[in-house]
């Protein structure tokens, strides 16, 4: 990891803040995710983890600070000291580079697994259909769903649905993958199959930010762990060290609940 940390980080947050009305959810988040790094984001409910992920993907507009993905300012263009809001088309173009996986899968229920995966390559990337299908099959194969390509989401188990969702995000060839509690909606016996896919992805060198309560995954797979509470980063460091020896009382209290 040392060799990549000097290069431009994949995600750089500088004092990012976000409010919904008078409710300040993010109060100046600063962190950096190197290329190829896997970062786990943990924290109690309502601490702003999802909101931060959504800001990175420009699903929410940042109110303060600066957020860069691969050196590019998210949501705005800067000319001199002036920021200009992006046109929705430009924002959509930024999102294409970022894959996102949701807690509730959010697969398109009227499309089969394969159709879900090829949807964006076909209609966003304008990839030729044969090529999109070949790539889609390859990806579904990779997440272990070779025999489920023609199935509708309603006919798949939760774990299978989430794996389709991962394949769907990968189909856009993202340089960054965001996971928002990808296993929280799953039955315990299905969690493993999804974590395995994510582990494989991490090993292939994908940059990932994972919001999760799976401390085993964090310890084993993540390069760094960030503990958030009340809209600020409380503690950050090597997963193993934080988990075994948390420095802050809030981190200790949280870890004692999830471990």
């Amino acid at each position: 990891m040392n060799d990549v940390s000097h290069a431009m980080p994949m995600v750089l947050a500088e004092g990012v803040s976000k409010s919904f009305g008078s409710n300040e959810v993010l109060k100046g988040i600063s962190l950096s995710v190197a290329k190829g790094e896997v970062m786990c984001l943990v924290g109690p409910s309502g601490s702003g983890k999802s909101t931060f992920l959504r800001c990175i993907n420009h699903l929410e507009v940042v109110n303060g600070g600066r957020l860069f993905v691969d050196g590019e300012l998210v949501g705005y263009t800067q000319k001199g000291d002036t920021l200009f809001e992006l046109h929705p088309k430009q924002a959509a173009a930024q999102r294409r580079e970022i894959g996102m996986v949701f807690q509730k899968f959010n697969l398109f229920p009227h499309m089969t697994a394969l159709e879900n995966v090829i949807e964006a390559p076909l209609h966003v990337k304008k990839m030729p259909k044969a090529q999109a299908i070949a790539r889609g099959k390859e990806l579904l194969d990779r997440v272990g769903l070779t025999d489920r390509m023609g199935h509708y989401p309603a006919h798949l188990s939760g774990g299978q649905q989430q794996r389709v969702a991962i394949a769907r995000a990968l189909a856009m060839d993202p340089k960054l993958m965001l996971f928002d509690e990808p296993t929280s909606a799953l039955d315990p016996e299905l969690v493993g199959e999804v974590l395995d896919v994510m582990k494989g992805l991490a090993q292939s060198g994908m940059t990932m930010i994972v919001v999760t309560h799976e401390m085993g995954f964090a310890r084993e797979v993540a390069d760094s762990l960030v503990f958030m509470d009340g809209g600020v980063v409380v503690e950050t460091g090597i997963p193993r060290e934080i988990i075994s020896n948390p420095q802050h009382a809030r981190t200790q209290a949280f870890l004692s609940k999830v471990l």
Binding site: F102, A120, V124
Partner: peptide, 19 residues
């Protein structure tokens, strides 16, 4: 969540509606 997923895939608002 459907709109969100489509948006996150880089689809425009109009594409999200139509597809």
């Amino acid at each position: 969540g459907q709109e969100e997923a489509a948006t996150a895939l880089g689809m425009t608002w109009f594409q999200t509606m139509r597809r």
